[in-house]
Structure formats: C-alpha cells, structure tokens
Design a protein around this nucleic acid. Structure first.
Lengths: 195, 195, 195, 195
DNA sequence: TATGAATGAGCATTCATTCAT
DNA sequence: AATGAATGAATGCTCATTCAT
C-alpha cells in the first residue's frame, strides 16, 4: 500500500504537471502551482523528480509513450494499410480531443533543454514516422498503394494529420473536427493509392 | 544618414533578436545577449522596443510578413494551380534554408503573451491557409483538381509542407531536402488532381 | 516556537527597515541592505512583505501607532490640562531620544506612494491633533486656559513641540534637549508678551 | 543678449526643477521631465548643472535664499517686535500660498546627499532661527516681551508657524489659512493660560 | 552652445531548490 | 517520507550621464 501510495503521488504530480505545463508552457509554469494542483507539498515534488526540468521531461516522455501506445494499440494485423492509417488518424483525433492538455504539450512544446532530451524528442518523432512508414510499405508491397517514397509519404501523412490540431485546440469551431478528418484523409489516400 | 543610421540600429536589433530567440526560445533568450549580438548597449534595445515581449512580437510579426511576402511574390497569374502550389512549396523550402533562424521561430514558437498577439498569430495562420485555399479553388474551378473540400486540402497541403521543416533544421541530413519535397508534393497532387 | 520564530523574523525585518530607511530615506535604502541588517536572506523579506513599498508603509504605520500609544498611554484622568500637555511633551521628547531612528522617519519622511497611504498619513496626523485639541478643550472648559481657538492652539503646540526634533537629531548639542523643552512649553502656556 | 539668454535658460531650468521636484520629490523626478518642462534638451541641463543632485541643491539653496529674502525684506526698523513677527508670519503665509511648489520643497524635502549639503541646510535653518531670535531679543530688551529664553522662543515661533503648512497644502480647506494664522499667533504672543 | 541617441551601472523582484523539522 | 520557510542567483528594466554632431 505504501508502494501504491508512492506511485499514486508520483502520478498525481505528473497529472498536475500535464495540466499546468500545457496551459502555461514550461517557463510560466511554477513548481509551486504544480504542487498545489497535485495537492502535495512543494518539497514533495523534489522527492520524486530531481528538478523542474526533469519533471517536464519525464512528463513529456510519458505523454509521448502514452500517445504512441494509444495510437498503436488497435492496429491489429489483418487490416488493410488504408484501414490501419484511417484507424490511426481517428485515434490521433480522439487523443487530441480526450487528452487535450497532454496533446497540446506533446505536439507543440519545443523547449530546448539539453542534447539528450533533444535526441529523445527527435527519436520519438522518428518512431512515429517509422510506424507510419511501415504501414505504407505494407500497402505498397500489397499493391494497395502506388510505389511512392514511403518516408516522404509518412511525413506527408503525419504533417497533414498534424494540421488538424490547431483548428481544434485554438479555435472555437468545435463541431468541425470530424468533418475535417475525412476530406484530409481522402486527399492523402487518393494521392497514395494506385488507380 | 541619421535616418538610415536609426533604421540600421533597429534592424540590427531585430536581426540579433531573430538569432537569439530562435536558438534559445523566448524565455531562455536574455536581453543582454541580444544587445551583445546586435553590438549595442542594453539600454539601446529599450530605445527601440518598449520591452522584451514587444521586441519578440515585432520580430515575429515582421518575420511572418516577410515569409508571406516571400512566398506570395512570385505567384504571378497565368500559372496553373499546380504550378503555383509547386512554386509555393519551393519558396517555402528556400525560405527555410535561407532564413533558418527566422523560420525556426515563425514556424515553431507558440508562446502565449496576450489575446491580441494570439489573435494576430491565428489570423496570420488563417491568411496562409486562405492563400493556399484560393489557389486550390482555382484549380477546382479550372478542372485541374477534383472537387475536394478546399479548406481541408489547404490544411493537408500546409501540413505536409510543414513536415519538411524538422528534418531540415534538426537533423544533419542536409542533402535530402530537395529529394524530399518532390515526393511529398507528388502525393498531395496525386490526391488532388482529377484522374 | 515556530510561531514566535515567525513573529521574530518579521520583527527583525521591521527593525532593520526602521534603521535603514531612517538613515537613507526610502529611495536610497536598498532591500539588500535591509535584509543584511536583519540578518535574513533577501528573499525572506519578500516572504513577509510583498514589496519594498509595502515594507515601508507597514513599518511607518507601526511606528506611528507606536508613537501615539507611547504618548497616549500615560495621560490618565485626574491631571490638569497643563499637566497632560506637559506629560505629552516629555513623552514626545523621550520617544525622540529613545527611538531616534523611528522618530526620524515618522516625523520627517513625506514620500508619496498612493492615495491610500497619503490618506492614512493625513488621518494619522489628524488623530494627533485631535488628541491635543481635546486636552486643550478640557482646559478651556475647566477655566484653566483662555477661550482660544482650540484647533489652532493644537497646531501651535504640535508645531512648537516638533521644532525640538531637528536640534536633537541633527546637531551634536545632546545635552540641551531637556533645557529646551521647558522654555518652549513655557511660551506656549504663558506667551511671549509681558502682561 | 547672449549672456541674458544663458541666464534665461538657467532660470528656466531652475523653475522647471522647482515644479517637478516639488511634485515628485527628488528620486521620482526625472531629468528628462525637467528638461521637457524647461523646454530645453536633456543635454542642456548638464551644461548648466553638473548633475541632478547639484541641480536640486542649487534650486534648494536658491529657494531658501528667496524665502529668507522674501520674509526679511519688509522688516523695516521702527516696528515693534510683535509687529515684525506678525509681518513675518504673514509673509510666510503669503510665500506658501504664492510659491506653493517652492514652499513644498524648502519646507519638507529632507533628502540626504552629502555632508556639505546637510551643513548648508542646517545653517540655513539656523539663519532663520537667528533672524527670529534677534527680533525676540529686541522685544525683550525693549520690555515688550517677557524675559524668556529667546532661542527656545524662536524655535517655538518657527514651529508654530510651520504647523500651518500641511493644512494649507495637503487639505482642501483652502478658505481657512488666514483664519488660522491669527489664533496661532495669538497663542504665541499671549499663551494658553488664563491670567 | 545645444542636443538627444546611446549607454550600462544598479536594483526590485521572482522562483527553483534546499534542508531542518 | 513529507513539508514549506528560507534562500540568493539571475534578469528585465530604468534613468543619470556622456559625447558625437
């Protein structure tokens, strides 16, 4: 129970960090406020994370992993490449809507801390691209897609997908997301598919 | 000469701001360093800009305007929609390569300052989208493109284009940009064009 | 003990503030020095007072209240008006000598901060005048004093009393205060003119 | 004319200094503003005064001298001591009302600059006291006044006189000054006690 | 002589981090 | 383990002063 309690507290702090960092950005977020939101003492934050920076990075990493798992999890074999990408796009959209704060951070914060973190971020992005690229390669191999540059295709897909985020998070036109995803995917698939 | 001298100093500060802000982000950038890079006294920065925040915003706005003009300027009438978009993509790429620092800022900083600036940023993004959308609409009207949702298409185009930025700026594979642009555009156009 | 400790620290800072402010005035006094004199960290000052200005005002108010209480406390009923005023003058003198620094501030600083503080200062002065005026009114009612304008008399008394301050604080003739108070009071009570 | 022009400019600056210093105090007053009010360039201030501090001191000294001359000027021989003091009090009152700003400074600013200035201020005060003391001594010698401690009497007189200033300058009861001076003087001359 | 653009020393304030309890 | 009072390094900004014109 003590162990669970600890894990609990760590989680509480991470959740508070997501909320506060996502709303204020790294520098405007104060450790004091995170501690308050987490309902723990300020010193306690430092029991679990050695610094504000480390807290941010841990949270960021956890968020990214969570995102990737979220998006990956339902990509069961047996689906066509198009089905997989469509599923992925829907999961991406769902993630943004459901974990708005987390999404805001993992998708927009670009704070530079140190080489290690930069590397990790870069590699994390690479993992996402690789995931998409593999599906596209499957599609190509299976004759479903044209024989395009699969890395370029993955970038285009990810970029197009990413363009949905700002309209959702920053504007008020809340109704439109779903109606935005379909046509965007339509263009990408039309571009990818063999005629 | 005095007038030129003044403009010169303002410009020097803006250039230094681009460099420092782009490399460190808003909060890590120190006014001291910007002044040093601009080779002026710290107080001089405050002669031309009332605060660090105002300096950032001025620089950001100037950068955005510069980008849009850069990208808009060669879109002469008489070109097909595809030619226009291709041209735009090439100009985007050229901008990124030529004005690396400026691009890094205008394309990635998302610091929140105040509602006015948020609005300006949002509207600036909207201007970019509108520009693309109009070209796509022309293409649809002229029978060049399929009858797609032109706003969605503009988002997809802009997103795909945007996905080229990180590989260029953050990785070392400098050779690849040109070879990346073609296939990405290929997919978008295949998606857009009527068969 | 913790509570006492806190009160202790706040008090230490207030005492240091009296010393430093009184010797240098508001603007020449540096928060750094106050902290040093109080033997606390600079940040600690801001734990107890939200700003240098607030610290000054708190200190000033506390000093004024302390002065009034000091002067008021021994004015027991049963004394004649003349005895009361004499007592008050002696207490005033004692206060100046004993709390030199505090006196220097409460009696000479006239820094304008904001309307609230101005008002408070004004009202505080008014309280002092009122206190004196009442005693004079008693004296008039009791036939001890002539039927003078009691407010004007209070001002004259206070002004005359105040004129002792500079010779005491700014000159070196330390011996003379006591010998100065008597004749000044004598004039207030008996006037200049020969009958 | 050039010489007059210079003198003119110096005077303009001094007048502006009186206005600005008196309204804001030494530290809140900005050289920039003084220059603007004087309608000269900022650099010009430094042509006539070596520093802000020197400007203040010059202005203060000039103001004090002006006050003393103002108050001294009509004390023609042939008047009784009481007449002289009454005249002096009226002139004091007139000075306050007419040269409100200058009065505010010469009578309330207590900024510490350096030993020389402190000394000058102290001596200036001493001059005022001496002036009064001499008149009182005359009064005593001539049998007009009781044989009081003339220095103490001078202090009391000056203090009582000084007590009129705050009600005039800081409160709104503009009507009352004249009606305040008479009873205050009455007390100084006749004392509080019924004979 | 007059100017005001340029300067940088100086300071109030913030906030991540520590550590005694 | 948990806390939050205490700390001081770090920085944006002001403004008296200088000096080239």
């Amino acid at each position: 129970m003590s162990q669970l309690g600890e894990e609990d507290k760590r989680q509480k702090i991470l959740k508070a960090a997501v909320k506060v960092f996502s709303q204020k950005g790294f520098h405007e977020a104060k450790v004091d406020e995170i501690a308050q939101v987490a309902d723990v003492g300020k010193g306690t934050v430092y029991e679990y994370f050695s610094s504000k920076t480390e807290l941010f990075q841990e949270m960021f990493k956890a968020g990214m992993d969570f995102y990737i798992n979220n998006v990956k999890i339902e990509l069961k074999p047996g689906l066509t490449a198009r089905e997989k990408l469509t599923k992925m796009a829907r999961l991406h959209l769902r993630f943004i809507v459901k974990y708005r704060d987390l999404a805001r951070i993992t998708l927009t914060e670009h704070t530079y801390f140190n080489e290690d973190f930069r590397k990790w971020t870069y590699e994390s992005r690479a993992r996402k691209i690789e995931l998409i690229k593999q599906i596209i390669d499957e599609g190509i191999t299976g004759g479903e897609f044209r024989s395009v540059d699969s890395r370029a295709a993955a970038l285009a897909f990810m970029g197009a997908l990413g363009s949905i985020f700002p309209p959702i998070v920053f504007s008020k036109e809340k109704a439109s997301y779903k109606s935005l995803l379909e046509p965007i995917m339509d263009i990408i698939f039309n571009g990818l598919e063999s005629k």
